[in-house]
């Protein structure tokens, strides 16, 4: 599924959170959305999920403009995972997966939830309340929910934030494996540069609501004369005028 963002801006009173950005993600590619805190990443993702109305511009999903009239149709093809939003804490993992499978209109609910449970090793805490899980377990459940409808377009907001290296690696590996088997376009917002290098085909760097640079990891590292993506990020984030 192809995502095209055309000249979108978002203004909150006098604050310009996102300023006239455009980009495209080709089908089956992973795009990294990087930038310092407050640069407009969450607002951009919010607009693509239909949670925030852009002040100007349009978002196209497979050539169809995201608008209230086709919101339901397009949302059923997408999903989102973020450690900053949670699933109902008082429901068990199994109940949450069932509820979300139904909300997304999944046809074979039992089969799909079983697949997710097995793939993400959720068996041991399946009947535990979601609020009682550890960060790593919650993260895997959130990932299961985000893939329950076999989305064609997935938004991931810092999917491995606050995870230990082992679980973080498990999640990254799972995303890689899943992508190989399924048609999936991903927009990944992350502050973990190693994760971005490993998963992303292309990167967009945002600052003050604008896109200040884009390219593959290698292209950006080379362009800014740095040794790795972390240093490149720091150079772009700390630069005053040259890129703005």
């Amino acid at each position: 599924m192809k995502l095209k963002v055309k000249n979108i801006s978002k203004k909150f009173n006098s604050l310009i959170a996102v300023n006239n950005i455009s980009f495209e993600i080709e089908k089956n590619k992973v795009m990294g959305l990087l930038g310092p805190n407050g640069c407009g990443k969450t607002t951009t993702i919010g607009m693509m999920l239909g949670l925030i109305t852009p002040t100007t511009g349009q978002i196209f999903i497979n050539g169809i403009v995201l608008a209230p009239k086709n919101r339901i149709e397009l949302l059923s093809l997408m999903n989102f995972a973020s450690p900053y939003i949670e699933l109902p804490k008082k429901l068990t993992v199994k109940q949450n997966l069932e509820v979300y499978a139904r909300l997304y209109g999944v046809k074979e609910i039992k089969q799909r939830t079983s697949e997710m449970i097995e793939d993400l090793n959720l068996q041991k805490f399946l009947n535990k309340k979601t609020g009682e899980l550890s960060s790593g377990q919650k993260n895997r459940v959130a990932l299961a929910k985000s893939l329950i409808n076999k989305p064609k377009l997935l938004f991931l907001d810092e999917p491995t934030a606050s995870l230990d290296p082992d679980i973080g690696d498990f999640v990254r590996e799972y995303i890689e494996k899943y992508k190989k088997k399924n048609e999936l376009t991903i927009l990944l917002a992350s502050h973990n540069m190693k994760e971005v290098e490993r998963l992303c085909d292309e990167i967009i760097m945002m600052k003050h609501g604008q896109i200040v640079d884009r390219g593959t990891c290698d292209q950006l590292i080379k362009k800014h004369g740095r040794e790795n993506l972390e240093d490149t990020f720091l150079k772009i984030a700390r630069s005053k005028n040259e890129l703005e």
Binding site: I72, S76, E86, L103, G131, K145
Partner: peptide, 13 residues
């Protein structure tokens, strides 16, 4: 339960 965003991005009218 901080489930608000999950609910409003689900394809439900």
């Amino acid at each position: 339960s901080r489930n608000f965003t999950n609910l409003f991005i689900a394809p439900i009218r």
